[in-house]
Design a protein around this nucleic acid. Structure first.
Lengths: 138, 138
DNA sequence: TTTTCCAACTTGCTTATTGCAAGTATTATT
DNA sequence: AATAATACTTGCAATAAGCAAGTTGGAAAA
């Protein structure tokens, strides 16, 4: 069953999505996972937005509880913890890319994502599929 | 309310977008404007998520400051205030529709948006253009 | 084997934001 | 003239975010 423990403000899908994603940091953590391919706790801390470690720990816990990411020991280094994304997580790629497009158009100049945005505007499905593949989620 | 400086945490377009949109309520107000065609203060208060009037006033102020909406006297009733969306606002239609799609797939069952979502998946540009038109932003 | 490192958090405390109830000011309507 | 509606404000308690420092547990260095 979907969405058991979360308190939903309403049954509107937009509202339900925002019950999980609607804050300053959650979608930024997902950007790091989906577009920057970050996997380790320490990696998230180095992003330019400088998330505090307690907030990061909290968001990773909530994302895991929501079934968007998995917390596991890294297969390549059994003593490190690696966070990996689920299909529920990769299904947010379009949301993140649309936010990127909007932010690049209206909030930022010279952001260095022109190529990606152009490609996404030309053929969104292809870009989404490529990112999905790069995350091992073909 | 004190004048607020829009502080960008970084130059990343996703981060900049979230500096404006990243909270529990802002995108819900925009959903009401873009998908439910709400225009008046009182109308936003009647949404099922029950935003508090002080939070609503604050978000409308911030959205106006960000250039996403306009606060005007209603042309049809010169003594009522009507909020209308700008192009910067309508450019968020894809973001909202992707959130709707994600929420409907992963968080909600039986949400009554199946037709819209199917149409959006088949031909996103058409759905976006239709909504834009319905808002008087052809 | 004791020390030092490092990674992944946790704790304590301060500040900022949210939520709720109630109130106010300015027009309509009866 | 009294009532109602609209668009907000205000005050205050509750919650969340931000910051610095501390903890845990395994690994590598001395």
């Amino acid at each position: 069953m979907l969405a058991q423990t979360l308190s939903h403000r309403s049954s509107c899908p937009v509202s339900c999505a925002l019950d999980i994603l609607g804050d300053k940091w959650t979608l930024l953590v997902l950007r790091d996972i989906l577009l920057k391919r970050k996997r380790y706790f320490r990696e998230f801390l180095t992003s330019p937005e400088k998330i505090a470690s307690n907030i990061l720990a909290d968001r990773l816990k909530k994302l895991e509880a929501a079934g968007m990411i998995l917390r596991r020991y890294d297969p390549n280094n059994g003593c490190k913890i690696a966070y990996t994304v689920t299909e529920k997580g990769t299904d947010l790629i379009p949301v993140i890319l649309e936010l990127l497009r909007w932010g690049a158009k209206h909030e930022v100049v010279n952001n260095g994502h022109d190529q990606l945005i152009k490609q996404f505007e030309r053929n969104p499905e292809e870009v989404i599929a490529e990112i999905r593949l790069s995350l091992g989620m073909g």
